[in-house]
Every structure is written in structure tokens, then in C-alpha cells.
């Protein structure tokens, strides 16, 4: 399978990437790791006429301790998130979620920014950063702005990013010492989650994100609210799907997904409460 023809330009800086995208207009797309975009192009489900390759923007690949949060460059690969000692200490939930993405070959190429910008509800990192209360930094022709994860995912593969905005950084609040759990339910190795759960608890606060439980990644706010008002794990987990509108596909009916979400949220909270 070969993609439809397109032109290719390699950006040397974030500013250049943004101006190139602006110049080529609607049919142009950023290319990061290419592990969501190229499969779609090979199936001709996407046919951009220009690719602006941001894969060499090395200054957007970093994981830094920034005081109250960890700052992660958008071009940081899944493998680097998985093995980061900074994340192991302050946000091990995110490193573990990254280790659950696809397989090592995929993790050598795919980037955290590409995963979040693509915003597939079945992806692991959008729901995990949502559960963590992350902030995303977007750079456009008129400067940068910060977008809270909870305001970012607008619909199926649709985000608050404008076409000429580049996601540059993901800011994840530190949850040093928190209990956490990442649950991924699938039938075969390497598969995407049929349902996934990212959860953490720290000093009465908590966050629970759901993978593949609707057209966007879902924040299970009712679960956190119940825990905050003193509910036990089993009781709170019953509310797992309150915010969800799961779809039907080859793997699961909506009813089965709701069942899975409750079971997996309970397991996740039990693990996070140890």
C-alpha cells in the first residue's frame, strides 16, 4: 500500500513549521513520528497534499523538571517517556502508560505530541494526560497559548488546536508519591485497548481517565467526586461510565464496555489505594 502523492518539506524550526503549514493551507499536515498519519495515508483515508516534517525538531524533544510540573516536549518519543527517570520519580503513571503503547518499534517512532494532537479515543496517552490534569502548549503564528486537557478534546479526532497551531509542550503536574494504576484490556499482545483506565490518588485527590469509552478520551469526574466525598473504591467504581458514551465495534458492545470500565476502574483504584 502506497500513499497518494504529496509534497514533503522538512522544517528546521517550530516557527518555520508553522509558517509552512500556514502557507500550504488546509491540505497540509504536520508529520511527527508518522505512526498514526502514515497508516491512514497508506489506506488513503487521509490524503494530505503536503507534509511538513517536524520529526527533526530536536529542541522539542525533552523531559524537564519544571518545579510543580514536568514539561515534556511534543516531539518526545514514547520510548523516551517510558524510560525517563524524571517521570519514574514524579509521574510514573505516564511512563507506564507510554510503555503500553503498541510495541517497541512503534515506541521508537511515535511521539507524545502526535498521540495527543491525533486524539484517538483508543490511544493511551490522551486519556492518561487528561487524568493527570495536564496542560498543553500550542504555538501558532501569533504566539503561544495554554489549553487545559479537559478543554482540548472536542470530538472524534478533533481538538482545540487550529490547523496552523503546533503542539509544543505537555505540562504534567507532579504527583510524587501518589498511588497509581494503568489498566489496559485487550485480547492480543500489541493491540489497542478495548477499554483502558489511567488512575491516581494522592492525599484525597484523584484523577481517572478512560480509554476508548466514547468519541474522545473521557475524564471520569464522577468517580473522583465520589472518592472525595468519602465513597469506597467499589462504590466509586460503579460510577465509572457516568461520563461515557461508548461505541460498538468488532471487539465490544457498548454494554460490555460499560461493564469493563467499572471492573477496570475498581481494579485501578484498588491498586492506586495500596
Amino acid at each position: 500500500m502506497i500513499p497518494a502523492a504529496f509534497d514533503y518539506v522538512r522544517a528546521e524550526s517550530a516557527e518555520q513549521a508553522i509558517s509552512l503549514i500556514g502557507q500550504y493551507g488546509d491540505d497540509a499536515k504536520f508529520l511527527a513520528g508518522g505512526h498514526s498519519l502514515l497508516p491512514l495515508m497508506k489506506l488513503r483515508l487521509a490524503q494530505p497534499t503536503v507534509l511538513v516534517d517536524i520529526g527533526r525538531l530536536a529542541d522539542l524533544s525533552y523531559i524537564r523538571d519544571a518545579g510543580d510540573h514536568i514539561a515534556i516536549g511534543a516531539l518526545t518519543r514514547h520510548m523516551d517517556v517510558e524510560t525517563s527517570s524524571v517521570l519514574a520519580e514524579h509521574v510514573p503513571l505516564l511512563a507506564n502508560a507510554a510503555s503500553n503503547v503498541g510495541d517497541p518499534q512503534v515506541r521508537h517512532r511515535g511521539t507524545i505530541g502526535g498521540s495527543i494532537a491525533h486524539s484517538d479515543p483508543a490511544s493511551d496517552l490522551p486519556a492518561t494526560t487528561l487524568a493527570l490534569g495536564a496542560t498543553y502548549v500550542a504555538q501558532g503564528p501569533n504566539g503561544t497559548r495554554e489549553i487545559a486537557a479537559k478543554d482540548f478534546f472536542l470530538g472524534f479526532l478533533t481538538t482545540a488546536l487550529a490547523a496552523d497551531e503546533l503542539l509544543t509542550e505537555i505540562r504534567v503536574p507532579k504527583i510524587t508519591g501518589a498511588g497509581w494504576s494503568f489498566q489496559k484490556f485487550n485480547r492480543r499482545a500489541q493491540d489497542w485497548a478495548i477499554v483502558g483506565v489511567a488512575a491516581w490518588r494522592l492525599n484525597g485527590a484523584s484523577g481517572v481517565g478512560l480509554v476508548n469509552m466514547g468519541s474522545t478520551p473521557i475524564l471520569a469526574a464522577s468517580v473522583s467526586a465520589a472518592l472525595a466525598s468519602g465513597a469506597g473504591v467499589a462504590e466509586a467504581a460503579e460510577l465509572a461510565a457516568a461520563e461515557s458514551e461508548p461505541q460498538s465495534d468488532l471487539n465490544a458492545s457498548p454494554e460490555y464496555r460499560v461493564h469493563l470500565a467499572k471492573v477496570l476502574v475498581r481494579r485501578a483504584l484498588e491498586e492506586a489505594s495500596k
Binding site: 514533503y8 508518522g34 502514515l38 516534517d53 520529526g55 520510548m79 518499534q105 521508537h108 517512532r109
Partner: peptide
Amino acid sequence: CSLHLNGEAVKSCTILAVQ
């Protein structure tokens, strides 16, 4: 289709030659 790109295994059916 796995080969090494800069020493790391990658799937060469999911990478452009220009990359």
C-alpha cells in the same frame, strides 16, 4: 519489515524514505 534506524528497531513499512 523491521530494520535498524540509528541503531533502533523500527517498522520500515511505516516510515518514508525521505524521513
